[in-house]
């Protein structure tokens, strides 16, 4: 079941401040964030976030059609390198 519209999209509050600061500084630094559960809002478009996957910060350049998804969707938490003896699978 989708989230009620009257609540608005879920975003961790401090993220808004962080994004605004980054916008104001107008440098294209990677903004490190841990909040994978936050929705990507229209005002984040164009910024680059480093979304933590439990180990590393995965750089995510936010584009227009990412709006409405969550940050976590763009930062995979599992690495699957293939089965042993599977010649087709490439090791990463």
């Amino acid at each position: 079941m989708p989230r009620s519209v009257w609540k608005g999209p879920f975003v961790d509050g401090y993220l808004l401040n962080k994004a605004e600061v980054a916008r104001a500084s107008s440098r294209n630094d990677i903004i490190k964030i841990w909040t994978r559960r936050s929705t990507i809002l229209p005002q984040f478009v164009g910024l680059t976030f480093g979304v933590y996957n439990g180990k590393k910060f995965i750089p995510v350049q936010v584009s227009e059609n990412m709006v409405g998804h969550k940050f976590g969707e763009f930062s995979p938490t599992r690495t699957f390198t293939g089965h042993s003896g599977d010649k087709k699978a490439k090791r990463g």
Binding site: S63, N65, M66, H69, G72, E73, F74, P76
Partner: peptide, 12 residues
């Protein structure tokens, strides 16, 4: 295709 180009989990 949109999901795949976006490189989000569902696309993968």
């Amino acid at each position: 295709k949109r999901l795949m180009d976006m490189a989000c989990y569902r696309g993968l």
